[in-house]
Write a protein that binds this DNA or RNA. Structure first.
Lengths: 139, 139
DNA sequence: ATATGTGCAAAATTTTTGCAATACT
DNA sequence: AGTATTGCAAAAATTTTGCACATAT
């Protein structure tokens, strides 16, 4: 966890109790969590929802956390374990929302070609797979 | 536009003024639009925001429209021109939110492999590219 | 010491819902 | 005629903000 302290300090941001707590929750449950879910996971009375919203925004800016839209109107976040964790994609169960990380990424070449053809620069992408995990499949 | 009437009728849903208006707006501006944006695009006093929310939900269920999350907390929608429009991806300018449709999709093989390895079924995916369009690039 | 961050309460935003009146088929 | 849908107003739900106090560096 020392790494996070480091990265916060570098931006003259502080490693506070609430931020640590949030990071811990995101690390335990590895699913994308909404602000409210993080808040419920913390000891009652010991955390403030507004603080969690603010912290998650900050952590997103610092790229310690990644916003993740599941398609209902709620922002969820997952921990990015390493600073430049490279890059991976997700496989998400439509039913139980289990998330599997896929570590390969084969989109890079396509990205280069698209950049060339469109004139766009600074390309990034987001790729997510959805399906039914084995446990959720009808028998 | 007759096609939409057809598809609504088949589900015993009605082709009403507001729905037509919404579809027209989505067809003219081809960008992903939020409920409020659709509402502002319509003659003032002639449309109700709640109706637009309800209509967009319905149209999404009927797969005449597709929900599109740009990452702020606002649901946007684009028209799906054909019933099974196949499948394409988007290239979105981070600055001006211009959207370009990419009609090729090269993810299908990967999808098959992931399904095989993970045991997931019914795989679908979502792939979006982000970048700076030529007009938005710093000189 | 000082800038950054928290907690609380209040506000702003986005989305949903109830119900009587209206419009489509 | 009969059901689906609208419009309005009110409520939920989510997210943001102001400000005095607290905390990390």
């Amino acid at each position: 966890m020392g790494d996070f302290a480091e990265r916060l300090r570098r931006q003259s941001r502080k490693l506070t109790g609430p931020r640590l707590a949030i990071l811990r929750v995101l690390r335990e449950r590895r699913q994308p969590l909404s602000s409210k879910e993080v808040w419920s996971a913390l000891p009652p009375g010991e955390s403030d929802l507004a603080t969690i919203y603010r912290s998650l925004h900050l952590l997103e800016d610092l790229e310690m956390v990644r916003r993740f839209d599941l398609g209902d109107g709620v922002a969820r976040y997952v921990l990015l374990d390493e600073p430049d964790d490279g890059h991976h994609h997700h496989l998400i169960c439509r039913q139980c929302a289990e998330v599997i990380e896929l570590d390969e990424c084969f989109v890079e070449q396509a990205e280069r070609q698209i950049a060339r053809q469109s004139g766009y620069t600074g390309l990034t992408h987001r790729l997510e797979f959805f399906g039914l995990c084995p446990k959720c499949q009808p028998v």
